[in-house]
Design a protein around this nucleic acid. Structure first.
Length: 585
RNA sequence: GCUGGAGUAGCUCAGUCGGCAGAGCACGUCCUUGGUAAGGACGGGGUCACGAGUUCAAUUCUCGUCUCCAGCUCCA
């Protein structure tokens, strides 16, 4: 904990040094804010007034190099950080004199009568609550990483400032390690690996941005994920349904989505009727629930659909498979009695954990998001819903963070994020508790007194979007998928043409046992074929030559491990089946 | 949507200070028939993202559009 604090102080101090360097190099640049963040720090600058210094608009890579150099000079000077406490009025006049409008705005918003500022060097002074390191010489290892626009206070209508990101560590070695990690993450990028390994593609120009095409191998991977999910859902008392891709606009007006998300919906007008390409599966499931009178004895009703939805996300937010415009949710809606609510929530939580574990994710983080500004439903319902979620988490003994005001417009939610091999967080499961839609759609069941009552609705996904989950899997495993998910499990490599018949027999024997196998019959050397297989991340190569044909065996090569010796075909089938059975655990 | 950067062969990238467009990999044909990470030769492949403008001439300069990248904002 103390170390984390120290690192934060170090990084924040480093951001001051960067700001000092920027103002020395580009006089007239106005300061925004410069906090430490998870992996480093940033500082926001308004360069519009620095034109006189020859600074046109945004910082360039060359500028970053210059700034780094200037920072190194400031660090070499070992200038002390000096704290000064001022009356609010004095602070205001100081920053007015320095012509720092953003700082003046910040001071005006501060509550206390005392304001602290920090000085470094002869001229640089910054509004700051501190604390800081003692002097700039304590910064041992830093690097500026990138520059990007950022709205002042993060509000879209505010002016856009130039944000410089950097990072800083206590030692050169740690910094190098971090930079290496960034490079590793770059190499595993699913946007690169996916098309390279022929899993999927996004034909931005021809078909449209954010629309995914699964190639045969990717479609197979997706099918394996979906098949697993269908089986598990049936096991756990869900019923599988399918609903249409377009439905009339009225349904979304009733649900409230039309009012909140109209600009993100794909609509079409046919026969003077407005249709919406479904952005959610809930209304469809609600119609199925409403299709007959439900008794309290029928509840809970759990409807599951691998539902493909379309949302017109803003152009700038699209990102590989992680943020797309058409995607498939592993979506279910649970209609239950009030007294069933917590048990259902807890069962979903268990389901999420089991699923994550199966796919090889053991590290999760949980957030509880509460009522947002824009929302529907009564205070009382929000209270009950939030309480049910929170109590479920507590009763399961799970740690969670509260995300104030981040819930859906119709109810609070639990988000479960997974951490991958590089410790990065990925959004997957969410569980939302909803009293509002049952009311709007007049959902009902008959209680044991013969009276109509309103069920409670849970919205939940486990993986979230299949697309995003495929992206997550690729990056988590660096595309070295566990055998049960590998689209191609084994590649048969005949050494020369004369053993082709035997090789084909091996392929047929494996196919008959459900092994996903191909043969590499290219006219290439063994070395070349093995190299290709390794690069395509094929788990097993079966090398077939005269020796194998004579003894009725296959020479097995495991990816990353090399030649593991000869097995007869039954032994290999047994081995591969056992490994598939284990899944990721 | 906003700020900045970018778009040349299926992929990775050179190149043209405005004058017939290049390499490696991949692909095809042939030679080679091999023992665990690149055998050899030859060959096909491009409206230089798209649309306007300037020019004798535009892949190159200007403007617009589309898309991607880094962020911001957003994510039912």
């Amino acid at each position: 904990m103390k170390e984390k604090m120290n690192l934060e102080i170090l990084r924040h101090s480093c951001s001051h040094v960067m700001a000092q360097a920027v103002q020395e190099l580009f006089p007239g640049t106005k300061l925004g804010i410069g906090p430490a963040i998870e992996d480093g720090f940033y500082y926001d600058f308004d360069t519009s007034a620095a034109l006189s210094a020859g600074k046109k608009e945004a910082f360039t890579d060359e500028d970053l190099a210059r700034i780094e150099k200037k920072m190194a000079e400031i660090i070499a000077e070992d200038e002390p950080f000096i704290r000064e406490d001022l009356e609010k009025k004095a602070a205001l006049s100081l920053f007015k004199k320095l012509d720092e409008p953003y700082k003046v705005e910040l001071i005006n918003a501060l509550a206390g009568a005392q304001i602290s500022v920090y000085r470094t060097g002869k001229k640089f002074v910054d509004l700051c609550r501190g604390p800081h390191i003692q002097s700039t010489g304590q910064i041992k290892a830093f690097k500026l990483l990138s520059v990007a626009g950022a709205y002042w206070h993060g509000i879209e209508t505010n002016p856009m400032l130039q944000r410089i990101y950097g990072t800083c560590f206590e030692s050169r070695q740690e910094l190098d390690e971090h930079l290496k990690n960034l490079e590793e993450a770059r190499l595993r990028d699913h946007r690169k690996l996916g098309p390279n390994l022929e899993l999927f593609d996004i034909y931005h120009e021809e078909a449209g941005a954010g629309l995914v095409f699964y190639h045969p191998k990717g479609a197979l991977l997706r099918m394996l994920i979906e098949d697993y999910e269908k089986k598990e859902h049936l096991k756990r008392g869900y019923q599988i349904v399918t609903t249409p891709h377009i439905m009339q606009a009225g349904l979304w007006k009733t649900s409230g989505h039309y009012d909140y998300y109209k600009e993100n919906m794909y609509t079409l007008n046919i026969d003077k009727q407005e249709y919406v390409l479904k952005p959610m599966n809930c209304p469809g499931h609600i119609l199925i629930y409403k299709s007959k009178t439900r008794s309290y004895k029928d509840l809970p009703v759990r409807l599951f659909e691998l539902g493909t939805v379309y949302r017109h996300e803003k152009a700038g937010v699209l990102h590989g498979l992680l943020r797309v415009r058409g995607f498939t949710q592993d979506d279910a809606h649970i209609f239950c009695l009030p007294e069933q609510l917590k048990a259902e929530i807890k069962a979903v939580i268990d389901f999420v954990f089991d699923t994550m574990k199966t796919f090889g994710f053991n590290d999760v983080s949980i957030e509880l998001s509460t009522r947002p500004q824009k929302s529907i439903g009564s205070d009382e319902d929000w209270e009950r819903a939030t309480q049910a979620l929170e109590e479920s988490l507590k009763e399961k003994g799970l740690a969670y963070d509260i995300n104030e005001g981040d819930g859906a417009f119709y109810g609070p939610k639990i988000d479960i994020k997974i951490k991958d091999a590089l410790k990065r967080k990925w959004q997957c499961a969410t569980i939302q508790c909803d009293f509002a839609l049952p009311k709007r759609f007049n959902l009902a069941y008959i209680d044991n007194a013969g009276k109509e009552q309103q069920p409670i609705m849970l919205h939940r996904v486990l993986l979230g979007s299949v697309e995003r989950f495929v992206g997550t899997l690729i990056e988590h495993y660096n595309a070295d998928l566990p055998l049960w998910l590998a689209p191609l499990q084994a590649l048969v490599i005949p050494i020369k043409d004369t053993v082709m018949d035997y090789a084909q027999k091996i392929v047929q024997a494996l196919k008959a046992e459900g092994v996903r196998v191909e043969i590499d019959s290219h006219n290439e050397t063994l070395d070349k074929k093995i190299r290709n297989a390794e690069m395509n991340k094929v788990p097993y190569c079966l090398v077939i030559g005269e020796r194998e044909e004579k003894s009725g065996s296959v020479s097995v090569r495991q990816k990353g491990k090399g030649n593991i010796g000869a097995l007869n075909i039954d032994e290999f089938i047994k081995k591969i089946k056992e490994e598939v059975e284990k899944k990721a655990v």
